[in-house]
Amino acid sequence: MKKEEIPQDLSALGKITKEICYATDTEGNYQTGLSSGWNVKIDALDLAWADIKKRIETARQKVLDHQASPVYFFMEYRLMDLSILADYTGFWQWQIKRHLKPNVFNNLSDKNLQKYAEAFNITIEDLKTMTVHED
């Protein structure tokens, strides 16, 4: 691709950041150039975010149906997996799996709930009620 052909399609991240692309100049030498977005990439990211939103809503419904604890919802909301959450909380992964069960979660101490609240950057009350405050 030639330097003047670097895509400049405005994306959601286009106002925040730019991406470095490699392109050729008029003499055929490779140089870097900045791109504010590319429609193909924008479509792929939109599709990925739609999938993430669907996973979050599925998790919310499982909590409301008493099939999972609010920890599951916030793991999906914060894009975490067991390994990441274990690193943030200090719990073993098997402990977190247990805490995903509503009956186990309901018996957790405030000390343990506070570890989850800190990992998710929320309060204990927000954790219990699945309340999300947009940053």
Rank of each mutant, 00 (worst) to 15 (best):
T131L: 07
I16W: 13
L45M: 02
I6A: 01
W38V: 07
H133P: 08
L13R: 02
R60M: 00
R60D: 00
V40H: 08
G33A: 14
K53Q: 03
F74S: 02
D65V: 00
K3S: 13
N112R: 13
L82Q: 08
R55G: 04
K62F: 00
Q114L: 09
Y88K: 15
D81W: 11
Y77N: 11
E5D: 13
I96N: 10
Y77T: 00
R55K: 12
L113T: 15
K15W: 07
K15M: 07
W92M: 12
V63H: 08
T89A: 08
F74A: 09
Q8A: 01
V104W: 03
E5K: 13
E118Y: 06
L82H: 14
D81Y: 01
F73S: 08
L64W: 01
T131V: 05
N107V: 07
E19Y: 02
K3F: 06
L113Y: 00
A23P: 10
A119F: 04
Q93M: 08
D51V: 07
E4S: 15
G14T: 05
T123A: 12
T17A: 06
P70Y: 05
F73A: 10
A119Y: 09
A12R: 05
E134T: 11
F105T: 07
E76S: 13
V104G: 03
D65K: 09
L108D: 04
G37D: 02
L82N: 12
N106Q: 05
Q95D: 03
K128R: 15
K18P: 11
V71E: 01
T17V: 14
S69V: 07
